[in-house]
Amino acid sequence: MSTLEIRDLQVAVEDKEILRGVNLTVRSGETHAIMGPNGSGKSTLAYAIAGHPKYTITGGQVLLDGVDLLELSVDERARAGLFLAMQYPVEVPGVSVSNFLRSAVTAVRGEAPKLREFAKDLKNGMDALSIDAAFAQRNLNEGFSGGEKKRHEILQLELLKPKIAVLDETDSGLDVDALRVVSEGINRFRASGDTGVLLITHYTRILRYVKPDFVHVFAGGRIVEEGGPELADKLESEGYEQYTKATA
């Protein structure tokens, strides 16, 4: 049983205040959807929790099972059990997918996986996400299509088995087939154990495949409305207009 507790989080980018006091608790077994218009600060929340150097924490806490993640380095946060699926995974030339994944799994588990086991896990993971076997030899994210990048993020999610996963617009840029494959991956992850998911999205479409327990509406750098899955339906029909007006 794990808990991610975001307490009054305030974040700035280059002296510009982006997050203005975010409060949110994600427990394992729960899926929370954060929805909001572009520029509302959703991605800032994801990257600030993960520790991207561009974001400055100006106040608040992010606790994972009582440990303040904000005190840890980026890699320590990941090893503590946090995972961020990125909206725009970067290309890293000359680093192969298999080499990268083995390094990551070794770091997170604290010991190198047995080669045969790892090869089997990797193959199963790739098969489940309809990723071609040749993929493992390619350079990390280099020349990957948008869909391939997102499937690769979910592959990492399944291999690294974090306590809490933050998925930043994993659905953006996906066609329906790819969205289905990626959603199935997320659902396998949810079913695999005591894990919590914080799913950040602009669209309600993915929520038809990945059912949230809670929906939070993000606008102007904070959560402005909370509810159950029915809130997503309301957003579907009414859009974000009322929230953007309210914060403008």
Binding site: A50, G51, S73, V74, A78, R79, V92, S103, A104, L140
Partner: peptide, 10 residues
């Protein structure tokens, strides 16, 4: 950042 975010030390 990407590599560290997967737990790989700096």
């Amino acid at each position: 950042f990407y590599l560290q975010a997967r737990g790989i030390p700096f």
